[in-house]
């Protein structure tokens, strides 16, 4: 079983997000980057499948400038076998069609059985790249997956639907599957894993980037039209004011 995992490096949820003066993007030098949350679950699912099978290969693939090697190394430290960096400028990497095309070109000769990705990135949140990639490579696809079972060359996945519903979908391999957070417990890298990762291969590709079919004109902080009454003071004062608000304004006690 040969599994690719698409990993995106995104600003951490606690990172500041200063906007560049020309409002074209955030100031990347001021950002603390982490592995995209749902991608971390996707990686764990791939590692568990490889362990259950007793053989196979897990390849982590990340698209972006050299900083993304950090998340590739993190993936290798957790147990992935090798990495591929598709070296592109991050601002040029907005359009999922372009990104999926670049990944498709990079991996089409590899004949992966499964491509896992997180269901969406925590930065742009386009939520399309894994599905577009699957379509481009003629794979079956499924999104928002909460559980996987592999047998007899097929994969059965539990998809999350809306309003608390789920659905089992069975597909032939190869398959490109987007993973919902929470389906497993992602491991932390061991010290041995971290040391071993340094010796593992990262293949850096520098392809020509196609023309974007959608782009960001302007990035900005949203203006809230809601007036929020802020309650402050010491913890005791806050509690006192909250109780008054519950009683006199909202009238729930």
């Amino acid at each position: 079983m040969k599994i690719a995992v698409l990993i995106k490096q995104v600003p951490g949820s606690d990172s500041s997000l200063p906007i560049q003066n020309d409002a074209s993007w955030i100031n990347e030098e001021a950002i603390t980057y982490v592995m995209n949350e749902s991608d971390n679950y996707a990686l764990e699912e791939a590692l568990q499948i490889r362990e259950q099978n007793g053989n196979g290969e897990v390849v982590v693939i990340s698209l972006g400038p050299d900083r993304v090697q950090k998340v590739i190394r993190e993936g290798l430290a957790k147990g992935a076998d090798r990495g591929i960096q598709i070296n592109v400028d991050s601002v040029g990497a907005v359009d999922p069609l372009v990104n999926a095309s670049l990944i498709a070109d990079a991996i089409k000769e590899e004949k992966f059985d499964i491509v896992f990705s997180g269901l969406q990135s925590d930065d742009l949140g386009m939520g399309q790249t894994g599905i577009i990639l699957g379509e481009m490579l003629g794979m079956s696809t499924a999104s928002l997956v909460m559980e996987t079972e592999i047998s007899d060359g097929r994969i059965k996945v539990k998809r999350e639907l809306e309003a608390g519903y789920f659905q089992w979908v069975t597909m032939d391999l190869p398959s490109s599957i987007t993973i919902q957070s929470g389906l497993n417990t992602p491991r932390y890298p061991s010290l041995k894993g971290i040391m071993g990762a340094k010796k593992k291969e990262i293949n850096v590709l520098t392809p020509e980037v196609g023309q974007s079919k959608q782009s960001m004109e302007k990035v900005y902080i949203p203006q809230s039209d809601k007036q929020t009454v802020m309650i402050d003071g010491s913890a005791d004062q806050i509690v006192e004011k909250l109780v008054e608000t519950f009683r006199n304004d909202i009238k729930v006690i």
Binding site: D95, P96, L97, A100, L119, G125, M126, G127, Q128, I131, I132, G134, E135, M136, T141, A142, S143, L144, R159, E160, L161, E162, K213, Q214
Partner: peptide, 23 residues
């Protein structure tokens, strides 16, 4: 931008090579 739309519309984007501006 429903769960179902997230599941199948990216495939249309790939088939037609037309952009999908989401959410």
């Amino acid at each position: 931008h429903t769960y179902q739309v997230r599941d199948y519309v990216p495939k249309i984007s790939a088939k037609l090579m037309k952009p999908f501006l989401v959410d």
